[in-house]
Design a protein around this nucleic acid. Sequence first.
DNA 1: AAAACACTTTACGTTTACGTAAACTTTAAC
DNA 2: GTTAAAGTTTACGTAAACGTAAAGTGTTTT
Lengths: 147, 147
Amino acid sequence: MSEKRTFSISELSQEFDVTTRSIRFYEDQGLLKPNRRGQTRIFSTKDRVRLKLILRGKRMGFSLAETKELFDLWDETLTGNEKQLLKMLEILSARREQLEQQKEDIAMAEMEMDTAEARCREALTELQKKKEEQGLTTNTKETAVSK
Amino acid sequence: MSEKRTFSISELSQEFDVTTRSIRFYEDQGLLKPNRRGQTRIFSTKDRVRLKLILRGKRMGFSLAETKELFDLWDETLTGNEKQLLKMLEILSARREQLEQQKEDIAMAEMEMDTAEARCREALTELQKKKEEQGLTTNTKETAVSK
DNA sequence: AAAACACTTTACGTTTACGTAAACTTTAAC
DNA sequence: GTTAAAGTTTACGTAAACGTAAAGTGTTTT
């Protein structure tokens, strides 16, 4: 079912385009807990998923601390007493609000980019016109001279 | 047309829930350019819009430097030679890609939150069942004892 | 005009998220 | 078996985004 592959630090580093330094840092901060063979880190598919979540979180503007909080809470939740479960539900709902906010932000940004792009294109065609006019007059001059 | 109100630093601070320190910092970094009456900063509606953009940018994971770059570029663009305009169009298109990525991220996050919430609710109802069973047995015991 | 209050500059401190270098060990390749 | 490649720890450095304190300058309220 859940694949049992393992990954080296450099494999993950390449796949997700992060430095090994970053990955070790994430471990240091308690976000990843790879096994070891001797000194060497052996990452499981679970670690891989977590790394993916960390990076997505970053793209979404979450700090490592926030992401870690979520991870920890989820782990606690799985052992699950009622209080933990309810807290998790609260947090999930709070996150949903954040996501809604972000969607709004994105929609606004898209609209503004539409108008910005429109203005750019207008300005460009304006410039084109002027160029053409210029081009024509120089041409007439040249032909006039060449006669 | 474009309102001619002005704002004090504390007005903006309150309206957008940022510290005055942050606002001054944004000015320091060249993101805001309020007028002065003596020493005192007088913010225009344009400044207000920019502050709004800065904060939205932050929520979307943009650094102040990135936001500043956009502001500067837009200012340059308005004076508009062709090169600037084309560069702006490129940047806009790059931003759109980023936005698409973010939308994907949000969609993924929402899906995962759905399944997470479902698991939580399952676990909760499980606990409820156990409680009810417990409740029933204790009741029978109690009634048995109280007889 | 004195007190209270908002605003200012200057400057050092702090946290986050790594980069970078040094010196060492383990593993893989020849 | 040694050399190269990849991995490790330790530790100091850095950029971004403010926080915070100090000390001064208006301004307005009583």
